[in-house]
Design a protein around this nucleic acid. Structure first.
Lengths: 359, 359
DNA sequence: GGCGACCGCTTGATCGTTCCAATGACACCA
DNA sequence: TGGTGTCATTGGAACGATCAAGCGGTCGCC
């Protein structure tokens, strides 16, 4: 027996292929001469074991290359250690990279917390924004959701709340006032107004006084929030905003048109935009007119997308601290899944400004 | 009994919240007056049931809002219906959007095939490229993997093959020649050479004759493959390539430097690049010298990233058919997981050219 | 008339883990 | 000595689904 045991140790490096059934708790237990439950404890509550028993069990686990079967564990504990996140259709023709960066951060962060990220998409056929959530929830495929598109009027948050489904929103609950001022669910968000204020102040410090705004339509709360930072910064220095703002769709073409009109009507020397996409529209207009961004006209975008980072001469942009958002989201999720659960936490983070050649 | 039954039907719209334990197979069976197995068959093999029994069971399923418990099903069938995909660290300062677009397509496609996508990241501490795979595999958390970074020397494919782990590679097996000419695993790839040939021909048709190449270092098989398309197109028209090529790191700065050197030494009228990142470097150089892309010098990139789509005046770029790649990957995965498994299929797809203002 | 195949459905066993209650061993204290 | 308590460990029973075998009944075939 010692002989074969040594053989096994020597084989740790080259573990057997998985073509055969993987070892189970019972296999480990038998090898270590203990019961199944003791092996389970060695993994989940090591301090319950006597030190010598623990080492013996761990040695067996290592020798056999054992990992707990997730399905069995999930079945028993009624938890999957999976976080569901729905991704919308890929946006082409825009500079929207927020979600991709966030997904990366979320995957990294949740791994450290022992969670994996399950991506899903809504059914192609239906435009129902709840599509996908329902099924994953009822089949107990995920423990919780991360909801990212919490624009006003989005039914997801309300629906999930009603279902008592654990979820954390990336995006503040914009309709909180109507509900009595306090959200019933947890959320994490970035202070967009602070970002645009930062951007506008940066331009003011550079000597600009006529700073235009290109943002989204008025029904976008996020857009209006970002716009308020621009207003605040200008009014703070006693400068007017009249005639310097435009609200359009979030496309390059819209940004191009809006900036062309503004240049003609108000002669601004700088633009602050609600997105990098709109800012790229401004760069198009500048190119059309033979103007150089950063020399003749300054431009600032929002999101610090890849586009902002690589476009000549570099687009100054408000950068959301997505890594930190992910950390806060996971922290909130752990709170939700704890016993007893911690609900209704809200965290607001502050963006930074990535300064580049365009300003 | 009919009365309560009707009540239940009326309540289909407003399903009960999930705060209580969800219904199980047994609940449905009891309500429908059949056995558990019959309910199971109603879901997995409907044609085994008599039509009237089937409708009765389905009605019960609907009334109770039943969905099979994933964990229990996974445990019994030894399948998770999850596809694992590792994502690398987010690349900042580049235009590499291939993976994000691919992830979207993969999520969409695999949903239709009944699979979800599980994202994971390598352990931050270790640089071991196998980190993460091992654990997911042994714990039977995923049915198969999609491997995306199959550059030469990458140990993942070999390791997974050795483990008999089902996986499909996005990227051809570059070392196949050394292994006897035929890959033992399934793969899907895009013909990069065809893409650059397409791009170069496009420039030739526009009248360009001195077309430069900016690609990656020689040890990159992908880079050399893409380069060969440029060579082939030029030689096909009897044009020389000498002195017109540069091989550098995949960064904007490298592309900028390389294009500056080439402009000085060889006066090309057009550039074909191995990536949009490098192409952006060229745009930087053009801006530095007061030249306009698409008017004085033509530029073509590779990947059709968001950057290419929004940068003024639009960057012509080779577009990989990632939606189709995803479809082929999922098809191959279904083959792998079938009984008996279908292994070793290889699919090569052809890219297209998205023509924009830069050419 | 006898044999086998098929139909539609049921029953008991099983997947691999964790929860629960109970076990024996041992130390402590009265 | 006996009671009490803690510690380390154990065996049995879930968790909720599918698999495998088998039920009685009907049909077709030689």
């Amino acid at each position: 027996m010692p002989q074969s045991s040594e053989d096994a140790i020597g084989r740790i490096e080259a573990r057997p292929p998985l073509s055969v059934t993987p070892p189970t708790l019972a296999d480990v237990a038998e090898r270590a001469g203990v019961s199944r439950q003791t092996v389970s404890n060695a993994i989940n509550n090591p301090d319950l074991l006597r030190p010598d028993t623990l080492t013996r069990v761990l040695e067996s686990i290592d020798a056999l290359g054992y990992s707990p079967n997730r399905a069995a564990r999930n079945l028993r504990t009624r938890a999957s250690h999976l976080i569901g996140m729905r991704i919308g259709p890929a946006q082409e023709g825009t500079a929207n990279a927020t979600m991709d960066r966030f997904v990366h951060s979320l995957v990294d962060t949740s791994r450290e917390a022992g969670y994996h990220v399950l991506l899903f998409a809504g059914a192609e056929s239906s435009t129902n924004p709840l599509s996908g959530y329902d099924d994953l929830l009822r089949s107990t495929a995920v423990d919780a959701f991360v909801v990212t598109d919490t624009y006003l009027g989005n039914p997801q948050a309300a629906w999930l709340e009603e279902r008592r489904a654990p979820f954390v929103a990336f995006g503040r609950p914009w309709d909180a006032q109507q509900n009595g001022g306090r959200a019933r669910h947890s959320w994490v968000d970035v202070d967009g107004a602070a970002g645009t204020e930062l951007a506008t102040r940066h331009l003011l410090d550079k000597g600009h006084e006529r700073i235009a705004w290109i943002g989204w339509r008025k029904d976008s709360r996020i857009g209006e929030d970002r716009r308020s930072g621009w207003t605040r910064a200008l009014h703070g220095r006693g400068l007017p905003t009249t005639g310097l703002a435009s609200r359009v769709e979030d496309t390059v073409a819209s940004g191009r048109e809006a900036s062309a009109h503004l240049l003609d009507s108000a002669q601004p020397s700088a633009f602050v935009c609600a997105s990098d996409t709109l800012a790229m529209g401004v760069l198009h207009t500048l190119r059309d007119r033979g103007l150089r961004a950063g020399e003749h006209v300054a431009v600032v975008g929002f999101d610090d997308s890849q586009v902002a980072q690589v476009v000549p001469p570099g687009l100054t942009s408000v950068r959301q601290p997505l890594e930190q958002v992910a950390v806060e989201v996971v922290t909130a999720l752990e709170g939700l899944l704890a016993h007893p659960p911690v609900v209704g936490t809200g965290v607001m983070l502050v963006p930074t400004l990535a300064v580049r050649g365009s300003s």
